[in-house]
């Protein structure tokens, strides 16, 4: 389990993915995210600093999170995307769905600003 979670506000958390998100730790990642979603977290910043492996199982659990959050006004954004992760994102064309930010801080600021304009849980 290489990821670690940092709660930055009641509605937003940052997940530092670490070295790898793949078939070995994808189930743990999913369980942790679900726990936070149940506790009211709506926005996830995924920090891919130094991430060497993102396989299709790993990508699958990120997609599940996206599918779960979108109907309730939540967002999943990527920060500090490493080169190997960028290759996967390009191949699957998922940059069309997951906004990317150069740093965790810029991602977090953007989420806090947009969610203040548009409260979570309400339809835009």
């Amino acid at each position: 389990m290489s990821f670690s979670i940092q709660k930055t506000s009641p509605s937003t958390i940052v997940v530092h993915i670490g070295k790898a998100l793949d078939f070995r730790n994808a189930a743990d990642f999913k369980a942790s995210c679900q726990e936070h979603t149940r506790a009211g977290v709506r926005h996830f910043v995924l920090d891919f600093t130094g991430t060497g492996i993102l396989d299709s199982t790993g990508l699958g659990v990120i997609f599940s999170l996206y599918r779960q959050l979108t109907p309730i006004g939540g967002q999943v954004v990527f920060a500090s995307v490493s080169r190997p992760v960028q290759v996967v994102v390009q191949l699957t064309r998922t940059y069309k769905v997951f906004r990317q930010f150069p740093t965790v801080e810029s991602a977090f600021e953007n989420l806090e600003r947009t969610s203040a304009e548009r409260p979570t849980g309400t339809e835009s």
Binding site: Y66, R93, T94
Partner: peptide, 9 residues
């Protein structure tokens, strides 16, 4: 040319 993966949106 390619589009988004299936099952997301």
């Amino acid at each position: 040319y390619s589009d988004l993966i299936l099952g997301l949106d």
